[in-house]
Design a protein around this nucleic acid. Sequence first.
DNA 1: ATCACTCTATGCGCAACCGCAAACTTTTGA
DNA 2: TCAAAAGTTTGCGGTTGCGCATAGAGTGAT
Lengths: 231, 231
Amino acid sequence: MNDINRTLIAHFPIFEGFSAEELDSILKSVRSVRYASGQMLFEQGGQAHSFFFLLHGHLRVTKMTSDGKQIGVRYINPGEFCGIAPALGADRYPATAAPVDDSILLIWPAASWLPLAERVPKLAARVMQMLGGRLQEAHERVIELATQTADRRIANILLDLIEKSGRTDASGTEIRFPISRQDIAEMTGTTLHTVSRLLSAWEEKGIVKSGRRRIVITDKDALRKMSESRE
Amino acid sequence: MNDINRTLIAHFPIFEGFSAEELDSILKSVRSVRYASGQMLFEQGGQAHSFFFLLHGHLRVTKMTSDGKQIGVRYINPGEFCGIAPALGADRYPATAAPVDDSILLIWPAASWLPLAERVPKLAARVMQMLGGRLQEAHERVIELATQTADRRIANILLDLIEKSGRTDASGTEIRFPISRQDIAEMTGTTLHTVSRLLSAWEEKGIVKSGRRRIVITDKDALRKMSESRE
DNA sequence: ATCACTCTATGCGCAACCGCAAACTTTTGA
DNA sequence: TCAAAAGTTTGCGGTTGCGCATAGAGTGAT
């Protein structure tokens, strides 16, 4: 009935140090589903019926502003939990999540969180660490937005993206999933115009190469310098 | 040896539904300390030797930017935990905390977190909920900074502050602790000049009354309207 | 193969807001 | 009591980067 093997998840860092029994226990009431780009996992304000773990692909998490615009908050990479509102005692999702890729997820019903956390306290501890990390990141984003200029913020998010979801080859490091100028603009509090202009300028300098929803960083050091000091 | 009574903490919402035994268990290895404004609880990057619970007063949490400026991240009110890096598996504090008030805190040694979380799982769950809430808030700050104008952001933070730390009397709602224009500027990604100008303008309209490190909101509805639509 | 659609590029004007400067007020402390 | 320090107010000029418009290029559907 449940054909999900623990070897599917054992290698992810968040499960490092977990015993076979713990992993099996975690996979007890799980099922796996494939989502295609264009579908939606869950929507902001919707009943938090499930929580998720991303095995393959990439998710985009967005939030609605008070005036109705949808803006990107973060990307989820393989090996991350997502939609863990149930673990936080919330009965509604605080954001919307949608795949930008062909993605494969594990899905647990919300009700299974509490027993799961009791059965495998190590998991609860890890999720708590993950939350702490995300809180950290969010605070750093706040500080960036509050103190840095648009070009630095954009340089920073590109570095972030290739760090977490980059694939490096001879010509540079590419962001593994499709991402538009608009997407970057939203996450950095700028406009697609500014992003477009900057990427063009950086392309001329040989720092990036970019196409339609595709970005390759060819000179990471130059970009890092750009993110740290006025050009 | 340990003269800290559970009635000191029982009334705080985070301990709602806790049994006397659980509360006693929580207070097992705690001590209480009084801090005066001007001192410091812990510093960003310092060894995370303890975690804290604020009984009375107010703390200001700040972070260092990459170029060395100190900027305010949040305020802690009575009834909140603080410096819970140990619970998040971090061995260094990610921010600096200092009282802005005469403040009284409970202090646990870092090492007591794990046994405590095991003894009182309900506490771990509540702390996790709190983290979720803070993550939410941080994301909302990000969105605000990315999409709204300076005046709206300032209106928003004032509403936030009086909501969480306001004392209402006949003439309006006052922020309970001393806060300068500079402090507000840092938290909203503006400058003290902009804040000063706006507060002056709002004072003329009868929306706020403010003095040196003191702010009273006299017309909350007008401020709320200001935070929602262009003036 | 063609059309519709989405994403990208770039120019130009303008407003918001920062940066700097200088004066004023309140509080603290010797 | 007086001086020093900290916080606030206000003016003015200069940039940043947004808003808007328009054109072009790449992609997917029928």
